[in-house]
Design a protein around this nucleic acid. Structure first.
Length: 271
DNA sequence: CCACGCTCCTGCGCGC
DNA sequence: TGCGCGCAGGAGCGTG
C-alpha cells in the first residue's frame, strides 16, 4: 500500500532516469482505473521532454511544457522504469515510452489513476483543495490544533483526512500516534496544543524515517522486475495486535475505527 | 461545516 | 491439497 514514503521513493527513483528525455509514445492496455485514462495522452506528451517529477500528497506530477501527467498509485500501484524488452504483466496498464526506456504503471487493484492536466497540475480539482504537506513549513502542532477545534471524531480519523494534512495513511496514522503517545480514539477536539506539537513532530519523524528506509530500495524503481520495491519497515504497532509493545511489552490492541484497522499500545498511549 | 457509510478491485490468508 | 469466502485498503463522493 503506497503511502507517502513509497510515493516519494518512487519519485526519487524514476526522476533521474527520465528528466530531460522526450516522450516517444504511450501505450494504454487498460484505461479502466479510478478515473478513465484519457485517450489523447499521446497527443499531449509525444515529442515533449519531461521537465521534472514532483509530488503533492500521494500524487506524482510529471511536468512537461505542455502540462502535467498526474499519477496516483492507489493502494496496489507501482511505477517503474524498465527496458523496452521487459515482459508485460497482466496488470501493467499504461506505458509511457521514453525511447528505449519505459515508464510502466502496474496496478492490480486499479485504485490508482493516471490523468492529464493542461497548465498547473495543482489546479486540478483533485489537488486544488488539499491540506498542507506534513514535511513542509506550515504544518505543525499549531496547525493541527487550529483545524481540530470542535471536532468529535477520533484523532486517528482526523489525521487521515487530507484537508487537515496530506499523506498520513492508515499505517502511519497508527505509527505516528504511538510515537506521540496519543491514544487513537481520543476526540480530536479535546487534544491540546502541547500534545499536538508532539503529534506533529511524530508525524514528521515517522515519515522521514520511512523515506530514509525507502532510499535503500531506490534501485528497485529503475530496471527492476516490478515485484520488488515495497520496502520492509519496522512497525511499532501496525499489524501487531496481540504482540508485545516494543517499548513496554504490553499487548498491542486493534479495533476498526471509521472502517480502518487501528492499532495501539494500551499502556503507552493515553486518551 | 460535520459525520458517516459506500464504492471501486483483486490478492491473499484463513478455515474447512 | 484444494477450494471458496471475506477482508484489506486510498480517497472521493453522496446523504442526512
Amino acid at each position: 500500500m503506497p503511502e507517502l514514503p513509497e510515493v516519494e521513493t518512487t519519485r526519487r527513483g524514476i526522476r533521474p532516469a527520465l528528466v530531460g528525455h522526450p516522450v516517444t509514445g504511450v501505450v494504454v492496455r487498460n484505461a479502466r482505473l479510478r478515473l478513465p485514462v484519457p485517450n489523447d495522452l499521446e497527443t499531449h506528451m509525444s515529442g515533449h521532454a519531461l521537465r521534472d517529477v514532483r509530488r503533492r500528497a500521494k500524487y506524482l506530477l510529471l511536468d512537461f511544457d505542455s502540462g502535467s501527467l498526474i499519477v496516483h498509485l492507489g493502494m496496489s500501484g507501482s511505477l517503474r522504469v524498465v527496458s523496452r524488452s521487459a515482459p508485460v504483466g497482466s496488470h501493467d496498464h499504461v506505458d509511457v515510452l521514453f525511447g528505449c526506456q519505459v515508464l510502466r504503471l502496474r496496478d492490480p487493484r486499479r485504485f490508482g489513476l493516471l490523468t492529464w492536466q493542461d497548465g498547473d497540475p495543482l489546479d486540478h480539482p483533485l489537488l486544488a483543495h488539499l491540506g498542507p504537506e506534513p514535511l513542509e513549513p506550515g504544518f505543525g502542532g499549531a496547525w493541527l490544533h487550529q483545524v481540530t477545534r470542535g471536532l468529535r471524531i477520533p484523532i486517528k480519523q482526523a489525521l487521515m483526512d487530507s484537508k487537515r494534512v496530506v499523506g498520513v495513511g492508515n499505517i502511519y496514522a497508527s505509527e505516528s500516534l504511538f510515537r506521540a503517545r496519543v491514544h487513537p480514539l481520543t476526540p480530536a477536539g479535546r487534544i491540546g496544543l502541547v500534545r499536538y506539537r508532539r503529534l506533529a513532530d511524530a508525524i514528521k519523524e515517522t515519515l522521514t524515517d520511512a523515506i530514509r528506509a525507502g532510499g535503500s530500495t531506490l534501485r528497485d524503481y529503475v530496471g527492476g522486475d516490478g515485484r520488488a520495491g515495497y520496502f520492509q519497515q519496522h512497525y511499532f504497532v501496525y499489524g501487531r495486535d496481540g504482540e508485545s509493545c516494543r517499548v513496554c511489552a504490553a499487548l498491542i490492541d486493534r479495533r476498526v475505527v471509521a472502517q480502518r484497522a487501528t492499532f495501539w499500545c494500551p499502556r503507552c498511549q493515553r486518551r
